[in-house]
Nucleic acid binder design. Structure first.
Lengths: 203, 203
DNA sequence: ACGGAAAACGGAGCACGCTCCGCCTAACCT
DNA sequence: AGGTTAGGCGGAGCGTGCTCCGTTTTCCGT
């Protein structure tokens, strides 16, 4: 309750920030090729400088949109787990994750650049994503529906791998097949019990 | 001796190509930050379009300069091996390689981009470079001065690693230490014999 | 309620890589 | 030697990410 509670955030500033973020999200989602900062500014109805004031580089804009979307995915995980059996929730969330990634190839180029250009605040979003997955995985462990030896990291890696390979331009069918395969592996069925120390027939 | 011998290469074209290449080399060598294509064109005394006609992208220009320089390095290796003991020749060539790389950080950014942007005609220059190293390494094997179990690929990887880490802005001392360390490992001395099947105390 | 300061605004402008196009010149052919 | 033509030439111009700066808006103290 100190003075720091009101660092004098001007109303127009906050409003514009949100407007730009919304426009950017829209632009990234609907674009075939990467939208320019000018296009986003025009779409938001603000000047280019305003965009840059709130997001000093294009990468930071992409990052902000990305993080925002990740947060929505996190909420989605909670909702799915609340109303579906864990296995179904996981499969549904995979689609959520996939369509999110797929419709978002408008920024993959910049994202790619950010990733191997070194550090990206990916650590944070990554944590959120892993938490979302863990939420579903833990529910599955509790009911015994899902094998307990696969971590959220494993899951995330598998999904990124699958969509990285199979999401290029209308390979949705392949992605679905791979996701089903992954789900098959995740399910604990009567004829296949999975515990910490398995029979070890291989590996 | 068919018509193909004279594909009608215009004199001005060939002349300009060389002029641009020379100007580009000069620019890359002496620049702190990457020179622009315009700057290179101005420096060469030609129009920007002429630069682009001979080198359709900046990357291709960088590649051309790079390859040209690599060829000079190759020649340098032969010369060193002809007049120095293999170990000294190797160490001297390392410096050659290093100063070449160091003075050339005017293009490292573009090079980096080319490398992880996928394919680069690096294969060719790479081969030449490896041949140059192999020349020295083979001489060392013949005299027994250098351990025979390190390939040219190993050597190249080590050097690139060292200069990649230690060549950033006046870390010459560190680079030298690492190079000496590498050389120490390469030398076959009385107290340390190296052959195909070593004592295997570790690994 | 209002006036002034502080901060956000818009857009002109910069340098970049790269392209398009009208002129010009080098190389062939009689 | 002179004419014709293919091709090279220069530079204006496009779209990009990003910055500078004069103008406008919001907020706070009176």
């Amino acid at each position: 309750m100190s003075d720091f509670d009101t660092p004098t955030v001007r109303a127009d500033s906050a409003r514009n920030r949100e407007t730009v973020l919304a426009a950017a999200t829209r632009a990234f989602l609907s674009s075939d090729n990467e939208p320019s900062m000018r296009a986003i500014a025009r779409d938001a109805g603000v000047g280019i400088a305003t965009v840059y004031r709130h997001f000093p580089t294009k990468e930071s804009l992409v990052d902000a949109v990305y993080e925002d979307q990740v947060q929505r995915l996190t909420i989605g995980a909670s909702e799915l787990v609340a109303k579906l059996p864990p296995a179904d929730a996981l499969r549904a969330w995979m689609d959520l994750f996939g369509s999110w990634l797929a419709t978002k190839h408008g920024m993959t180029e910049t994202l790619r650049a950010m990733i191997d250009a070194g550090e990206i605040s990916l650590t944070h979003t990554r944590t959120q994503l892993l938490d979302a997955i863990a939420t579903i995985l833990n529910a599955g462990r509790a009911t015994g529906e899902l094998r307990p030896d696969i971590s959220a990291e494993d899951m995330a890696a598998s999904l990124l791998g699958i969509f990285g390979v199979a999401s290029k331009s209308s390979k949705g069918a392949q992605a679905n097949r791979l996701l089903d395969l992954l789900m098959d592996g995740m399910k604990v069925t009567p004829d296949r019990r999975v515990d910490a120390a398995g029979p070890g027939s291989h590996q």
